[in-house]
Computed example of a mutant assay.
Amino acid sequence: MSEAKWYVVHTYSGYENKVKANIDKTIENRHLEDQILEVQVPMQEVIEMKNGVQKASQKKMFPGYVLIHMIMNDDTWYVVRNTRGVTGFVGPGSKPVPLTDAEMASLGIRRENIVVDYEVGDTIKVVAGAWADTIGVVQSINMQKQSLTINVELFGRETPVEISFAEVVKM
Rank of each mutant, 00 (worst) to 15 (best):
A4C: 14
W6L: 08
V8Y: 09
V8A: 14
H10I: 05
T11R: 04
S13P: 03
G14V: 03
G14I: 03
Y15F: 15
Y15Q: 13
Y15N: 09
N17L: 14
K18M: 12
A21L: 10
A21R: 10
N22H: 09
N22P: 01
N22A: 14
I23S: 03
I23W: 01
D24G: 02
K25D: 11
T26Y: 05
E28S: 11
N29I: 05
R30M: 11
R30N: 09
H31N: 15
H31W: 10
H31S: 15
L32A: 00
L32Q: 01
D34P: 02
Q35H: 12
L37M: 06
E38N: 12
Q40E: 14
V41Y: 06
P42N: 07
E45R: 13
E48G: 03
M49Y: 04
V53C: 07
S57L: 15
Q58W: 11
Q58S: 13
K59L: 14
K60M: 12
F62M: 06
Y65H: 05
V66T: 02
H69Y: 13
M70I: 02
I71M: 13
I71E: 08
M72E: 08
N73C: 11
D74R: 10
D74N: 11
D75E: 15
W77P: 00
W77M: 13
Y78W: 04
V79Y: 01
V79A: 02
N82D: 08
N82R: 08
R84G: 02
R84H: 11
T87E: 08
T87H: 07
G88R: 10
G88L: 06
G88C: 07
G91R: 06
K95W: 02
K95V: 10
V97P: 01
P98W: 05
L99T: 04
L99A: 11
A102L: 12
E103M: 15
M104P: 00
A105H: 09
A105S: 09
R110K: 14
N113I: 12
V116C: 02
D117C: 04
G121Q: 03
T123A: 09
I124H: 00
K125I: 10
V126T: 03
V127N: 08
A128L: 13
A128M: 10
A130E: 15
A130W: 05
A130M: 10
W131A: 07
D133T: 03
T134C: 10
I135H: 05
G136S: 03
V137I: 12
V137A: 06
V138Y: 00
Q139H: 08
S140W: 04
I141Q: 01
I141C: 05
M143T: 12
Q144M: 13
Q144G: 07
Q144C: 05
K145I: 07
L148F: 10
I150V: 15
N151V: 01
E153L: 13
F155V: 11
T159Q: 09
P160D: 03
V161A: 12
E162P: 00
S164I: 00
E167D: 15
